[in-house]
Design a binder for these strands. Structure first.
Length: 493
RNA sequence: CGGGGCGUGGCGCAGUUUGGUAGCGCGCUUGACUGGGGGUCAAGAGGUCGAAGGUUCAAAUCCUUUCGCUCCGACCA
């Protein structure tokens, strides 16, 4: 009941007491820390329905930023946005056998419209392959109609048994790209291209280093030929699937009859891909960068990159206010800045509040600073505090924000490297999965039985099969057969 | 779906063992003094104790049923 002691404010070191007391320290209870952060930073609130949530403005702003930055990349790679219905006739979902088997346990049903019982029950989309393929079967006739490169931003519903804010909710927001191609090679290229878009986005904008690879049969998308994945390591040593890209092959094209007449006068099925990332990315952001004081948002993704906190004393109130308003106006064209000139909160209160919300940089301006022609800067990521002459501020800010972004990535990268281990000793592996977690790079024979055994023994799963890397004459980590693949193991969310 | 924890002012909790006038902290309101790391003082507002049924002179407290949340597992973005 350490947790309760903490919450009621007892038995805490004096040092900690100075800071945000509503947040349970990571070291005490990681899950509780996560929940405290999302609630206290006003990212979300629980809905009156299990597994559902409201995404509050400060959480949604992150999603908007993610949308903006990703959507730009989708457009650059030739994709267009569209929108498809939220409801899918059940018979459509049923067409692809593997697909329906994978999703039927978690679909939500609509059986009534008003007072009338529907003759054809509908399901709320858990993903849109089925309904989109139904459209594509009509839209695609000729090789001239290919490729189809469409994306949609929407919500989906999966009736989950256990849910956690952002990481797994029954309804979540995402984007799903759905493409059709003339050849297998082209589809494969598309699937890998979008995987790389995700990886690059997550690393560049979110400052989260990610490993990419292919999913095993056990872990792949229901109905896909191959599934590729972007995996990130959270600060508790568990892996999180941050994005997926599927080569669907012709599985859906066959059952939905998506055909085109090729130049050689042959009627052929298209080759398809689908790929997506969700609001789960927000969960990843929190768990990769956050600390005991709350969120830390990388500057490129931050709604506010810097917050100006004036120190308003009775005597100097007017001139400080005037100065910060001017500073705010000067900075506005160049960085996303917020002036917190509320007078009903003390500066110290604001420091804690903005730190909890993860604003990358704080700019303090008080009477002493005005006298000396300077401002005080405090970095959220490492707490570093330094004085900058006001004249230099303008020139230094962009570089400083970039520095913070880089340092955050570097820190996450180092964490991942320290927590990526490898070896061939199964006992050691079990021990590491139990004690330290993190990624474990090892060789695997390809037998699902070994994969299953690992899961039973350690709760870890194969997160992905590493691209272009084959074991050299090694045995499988689990059995004594010859290894075929190099894989990352980890306990996952 | 299994196992644990929890439902009491907006939030966090005490009170339940042993039935007897609903309490504390934070937040909120008003005012004054304050203001460089969650300020101080004063005066206030706010609760059918998750719901239903039962036992009793009397139920937050005992009994039965039920609903919800949450954590951990099994299943999944």
């Amino acid at each position: 009941m350490t947790n309760l002691e903490h919450k009621s404010g007892h038995n805490k070191p004096a040092q900690e007491k100075e800071f945000v007391k509503e947040i349970t320290p990571k070291s005490v209870d990681y899950s509780q820390w996560y929940v405290d952060v999302v609630l206290k930073a006003k990212m979300m609130d629980y809905a009156p329905i299990k597994g559902f949530m409201a995404i509050r403005p400060s959480g949604f702003a992150l999603w908007e930023k993610i949308q903006e930055l990703l959507d730009r990349r989708f457009k650059e790679t030739g994709h267009e946005n569209a929108y498809f219905p939220m409801f899918i006739p059940h018979e459509l979902l049923e067409k692809e056998a593997e697909h329906v088997e994978g999703f039927s346990p978690e679909v939500a049903w609509v059986t009534k419209g008003g007072d009338e019982i529907l003759s054809e029950p509908l399901v709320v989309r858990p993903t849109s392959e089925a309904i989109i393929c139904d459209f594509y079967s009509r839209w695609v006739q000729s090789w001239r109609d290919l490729p189809v490169l469409i994306n949609q931003w929407c919500n989906v519903v999966r009736w989950e048994k256990s849910t956690r804010p952002f990481l797994r909710t029954s309804e979540f927001l995402w984007q799903e790209g759905h493409t059709c191609h003339r050849t297998e090679e082209e589809a494969e290229e598309e699937a890998l291209k979008m995987l790389e878009v995700y990886r690059e986005f997550i690393e560049t904008e979110m400052a989260i280093p990610a490993v990419v690879g292919r999913k095993t049969e056990r872990e792949k998308f229901a109905g896909a030929l191959r599934t590729y994945t972007v995996e990130a390591l959270m600060s508790d040593g568990r892996a999180l699937q941050a994005g997926t890209s599927h080569n669907l092959g012709q599985h859906f094209a066959r059952v939905f009859d998506i055909t085109f007449l090729d130049q050689d006068d042959q009627l052929k099925h298209v080759w398809q891909t689908s790929w997506g990332v969700s609001t789960r990315l927000i969960g990843a952001l929190i768990m990769v960068h956050g600390d005991d004081r709350g969120l830390i948002i990388p500057p490129r993704l931050a709604t506010f990159q810097a917050v100006i906190v004036p120190i308003l004393t009775k005597k100097d109130r007017e001139r400080v206010l005037e100065a910060v308003h001017e500073l705010n106006n000067q900075l506005k064209p160049h960085i996303r800045v917020k002036l917190d000139d509320r007078e009903e909160y003390s500066p110290g209160w604001k420091y804690n509040d903005w730190e909890m919300r993860g604003v990358p940089l704080r700019i303090e301006v008080g009477p002493k600073d005005l006298d000396k022609g300077q401002v005080v800067l405090v970095r959220r990521d490492n707490g570093e505090k330094f004085v900058v002459p006001q004249k230099e501020l303008f020139a230094r800010l962009p570089g400083l924000l970039e520095q913070i972004q880089n340092d955050m990535l570097q820190k996450a990268l180092e964490f991942r490297e320290v927590n990526t281990r490898s070896g061939s000793d199964y006992e050691e592996f079990k021990h590491i999965m139990e004690e330290k977690r993190g990624f474990f790079l090892a060789s695997w024979c390809g037998d699902p039985a070994c994969e299953e055994k690992v899961k039973d023994d350690t709760k870890a799963t194969i997160r992905c099969i590493v691209f272009d890397k084959k074991p050299e004459n090694e045995e499988c980590l689990v059995c004594d057969k010859k290894a075929k693949e190099v894989v990352y193991f980890a306990r996952a969310y």
